[in-house]
């Protein structure tokens, strides 16, 4: 199970990578394995400002549908367009090519409440 040290994690199995005042969000390696083959990603919140914990989209595997939640508050800037035709890149490269949305951070202090790699590792092993 891959859990990169340079990312932060939510209890809902999203990861976040901060670049200046923007951030990329995706689902963790653990989440993609649990979901199985990802077949559809839907995000209809581009340009919306959402609070921490609000759903920004849905991810569908062959057998299940799950909401994806904002790990911290922000304004959704962009959906990863590659997911439209090849959602399976989430399975292949969840922390890289398989990122889901980019957003502008509302309040960077909310990052302090997120899990680091060790804490997330402990969460999924519990």
């Amino acid at each position: 199970m891959s859990i990169p040290k340079d990312l932060k994690y939510s209890e809902d199995h999203e990861w976040i990578r901060v670049e200046g005042d923007e951030a990329f969000v995706g689902v963790t390696d653990y989440a993609q394995k649990e979901l199985g083959d990802i077949v559809f990603v839907e995000v209809e919140t581009v340009d919306e400002t959402l609070d921490k914990g609000e759903a920004f989209g849905t991810i569908e595997a062959v057998k299940t549908v799950s909401d994806m939640f904002m790990p911290i508050g922000g304004t959704v800037l962009e959906l990863n367009e590659a997911l439209e035709s090849t959602p399976e890149i989430i399975n292949k490269d969840p922390y890289g090519e398989g990122w889901i949305v980019k957003f502008k951070i509302t309040d960077a202090s909310e990052l302090d409440d997120m899990l680091d790699a060790d804490a997330y590792s402990a969460l999924i092993e519990a």
Partner: peptide, 20 residues
């Protein structure tokens, strides 16, 4: 096999992945 409960049986829901 990824095992799940199915109508009272412990059964494999997938091996390599459903699509494959």
């Amino acid at each position: 096999g990824k095992m799940v409960p199915f109508v009272g049986f412990d059964m494999p829901v997938q091996f390599a992945g459903i699509n494959e």
